[in-house]
Write a protein that binds this DNA or RNA. Structure first.
Lengths: 153, 153
DNA sequence: TGGATTCTCTACCATGTCAATAGAGATTTA
DNA sequence: TAAATCTCTATTGACATGGTAGAGAATCCA
């Protein structure tokens, strides 16, 4: 039930681009350093996000990346689906990447029934949370005092 | 965000064992045929479930597998965690398989914040649903008329 | 114009996982 | 003792993952 590093890096990059939405562009190197992501690997990921229409790029001396749309319009689900494929734990319950499974009767499969609920729960979150939300959460978390353990009164 | 075939097969096998909880044992071959699972592959999976303490086995001519505990006591989360590891989409939010991630400040990471919600949502379902629930759902689904599309009045 | 800086594209590679197959052995029953 | 079953270990091919590398194209600025 895992998100690959690739997907995680993508979300971290989108967060940086969201926080710098007022800037013309952000360079790969900046993102790479800020987020501890191998630069050449990040290049590929941002390129994928570009062909997905999520980010734009500019080449040359003043080049870099920026979001292709407003932060409120980009959901985490969009990014993850482009980079990783289905959100669903099994493909027979996926909306965008459906594949028939090998069980004897899919329409009456109890496991499929449960997995549908898991898919729903996951999709509900990933489709609702946007890059803008991510930025807001990030800003809010910055205000709290650093605490390695969970915060408690 | 996927469950491997291995994990899916395990759940399908547990369902069969649950439905036959009144029997002394069920043979691998029976499960394999009923569920379209390659026999030799299923052998390994059941063996894993055995070392996880989820099922018991009996060798010899009247041999086979059965659940090691009552169906109500075995959750899907238990089985999946033994076979696949974490339920969480990223390991920095995992309860049982925590690993530090590479982001600059984990305690204030906005992505981690969202992923925690996803983990919660997934775990809530997988920890609540037992093999007994699975069996009940299965029996209920068998009563409904077969319909390749979603049921509607 | 030229050089510095940046993204772009393709290829490559090492490692690991996944899904499955296989063989020989141990156990149990009839 | 024969037949049926589980057990254990090894192996395989395909593919994904995570990352590195090099040459090229675009852009800016001096």
């Amino acid at each position: 039930m895992k998100l690959s590093l690739r997907g995680e890096y993508a979300l971290r990059a989108l967060l940086v681009l969201g926080l710098n939405y007022d800037q013309p562009v952000v360079r790969i190197q900046t993102i790479s350093q800020q987020q501890n992501i191998p630069k050449r690997f990040l290049e590929q990921i941002l390129n994928d996000l570009k062909s997905a229409g999520v980010v734009q790029s500019k080449r040359g001396a003043t080049g870099g990346y920026r979001l292709a749309r407003r932060p409120e319009e980009i959901t985490l689900a969009t990014a993850v689906r482009h980079l990783e494929g289905a959100l669903a734990p099994v493909s027979c319950v996926s909306q965008y990447f459906y594949e028939k499974c090998s069980c004897p009767d899919e329409s009456r499969c109890a496991i499929r029934n449960v997995m549908k609920e898991v898919r729903e729960a996951t999709a509900r979150i990933m489709e609702r949370v946007t890059v803008a939300d991510l930025c807001e959460r990030s800003r809010r978390l910055q205000l709290e005092p650093h605490n390695p353990f969970d915060f408690s009164i």
